[in-house]
Amino acid sequence: MRVLGISIGTRRNGFAVIADNVLEVAHVRSRRDRWSPKKLQSLLTLYTRYIRRHHITNIVVKTPKHSHFTAALKQLIKALETYAKERGCLVQLTTIEHIKSQEPSIKNRNHLREFVVATYPKLVDKKDKDIKNRQPYYMKMFEATIVAHLESSRARTE
């Protein structure tokens, strides 16, 4: 099974691909321009590239709290779900609360980051950069990695 984890946003998106318990890709992509149909299409193209290039079968999307959904974010999620279903990918939405319930050692975002780095040590340099920054740039990548990891682990135990 090949899992794509996405921490979705209209400005910053985190991506992680896990296959056979191996982290293949972990990235953050930012788009600061205003929301528009062109930006929506650009983000969908980005998602499409990951899905095709990595032959994804399952997608897990970490979303903000439902109270923080904007019209643009709803539009983006709906478009991603539609595309993924057309490609035969399973799509699941999750939140930070669900992540915490799945992995009790994660109590906040710092614990999440530490858990991901302990599981995938090649991300330690991103953690170090994040700690130095005032705004944690790579947090979306860590969130995407944890949701992909949890889905991959769940699938292995079934």
Rank of each mutant, 00 (worst) to 15 (best):
D20R: 13
S101T: 15
W35R: 11
H111S: 10
Y137L: 11
H149Q: 12
K65R: 10
L112G: 00
T57A: 09
K122L: 13
T82W: 04
R49Y: 15
G14W: 06
L43P: 06
P121C: 11
H27W: 04
S105V: 14
R154M: 07
L44R: 12
F142S: 10
E143H: 11
R29M: 06
L150A: 05
E24M: 11
L90C: 13
H66L: 14
S153F: 07
L150R: 05
E97F: 14
P104A: 06
V25F: 03
L23M: 03
I106S: 01
R11A: 08
Q102D: 13
H55G: 06
D33G: 09
R34I: 08
E86C: 11
V17G: 03
T57N: 13
K140D: 13
T10A: 06
G9C: 12
D20N: 15
Q92I: 11
H149V: 00
A79P: 02
T94L: 07
K100T: 07
K85Y: 00
N13I: 08
I59A: 07
L123S: 05
A71P: 11
H54I: 09
I18V: 08
S153Q: 02
K126S: 11
T157H: 14
K85A: 05
V25R: 05
R53E: 01
S101Q: 15
C89T: 03
S42W: 06
E114L: 12
A19S: 15
L44P: 07
L150C: 04
L43I: 01
M139F: 08
I51Y: 00
V22W: 07
H111D: 15
T95L: 08
Q102V: 14
I18P: 04
L150Y: 08
I6N: 01
A84R: 01
T48P: 03
I59T: 05
R156H: 04
N110R: 12
N110G: 08
A155G: 08
E158D: 12
A155Q: 14
P37L: 14
L150S: 04
M139R: 10
T45G: 08
S105T: 15
H98L: 04
R2L: 00
T145H: 04
T10H: 03
S67M: 09
Y138S: 15
D128G: 00
V147Q: 09
T94I: 02
L23K: 05
